[in-house]
Design a protein around this nucleic acid. Structure first.
Lengths: 113, 113
DNA sequence: GCCATAGTTAGCAATATGGCTAAGCATGAT
DNA sequence: ATCATGCTTAGCCATATTGCTAACTATGGC
């Protein structure tokens, strides 16, 4: 049951920003409030909110509000589609490398003229 | 031989675009000319050139020009930093999950006393 | 030389991104 | 009730991204 959109573009885009990655590693320690997350970044609240919504839309975090406090937490399995894609690519790329070796050697041999 | 910056932001950003990912999977089959890569995308040459330079700056591909033909090829190990980061995160995230489990169990146990 | 091919460069337009301030709303403490 | 806290919304600005066309360079074939 895929609740979150596993769209790779959303996922990779969310991971492409250092602020967002630092938020994720911070959340890896423990869930945190929005203000707690903003602190280390040195950014203003609305800016952090924006990053959080990007992370949430990518399915990387969930948030819930209790009173006036919104608590954010990671969604560990959200990384899986990215990992899977990378693993698939590596498999394909490496398989091709063997063929490429042969190709390069051939070209180099012909280039000796 | 210019070492490419393994910057995760560049890397993830490059992977965040479907066109670029399709170019990569195309290149996984075999090296190809710029025109060959442009064909399947339905995009114009300059646009594809742009995508290629993003991929090259991220270290994901190398290109070389022979006569008027530029040949592009994947750089398999370029994915490693991304894979490594994902693996690290997963380890940390899962480690925290265990602690969270313990915490929850502890709370539940105390609640029974 | 002439011309088609392959790529490149320059520049335009629309949209997205990432930061901000200012003002608003809801909640908890006094 | 009042006020501080925590978040939210609206809107502004600068820059980046992604597409395009048009014009240019460079190479290879005839």
């Amino acid at each position: 049951m895929a609740k979150h959109d596993p769209d790779l573009s959303l996922l990779f885009h969310a991971l492409a920003d250092p602020t967002r990655r630092s938020i994720l590693t911070r959340l890896a320690e423990t869930p945190a409030r929005v203000t707690d997350l903003a602190g280390p970044t040195g950014l203003r609240l609305p800016t952090v909110m924006r990053h959080l919504s990007v992370l949430e839309e990518a399915g990387l975090i969930t948030t819930s509000k209790d009173g006036r406090i919104r608590t954010c937490a990671i969604v560990p399995e959200a990384l899986d589609p990215a990992r899977t894609w990378l693993d698939e690519q590596r498999a394909i790329w490496e398989a091709r490398l063997d063929r490429l070796d042969a190709f390069v050697m051939n070209v180099m041999k012909e280039g000796e003229e």
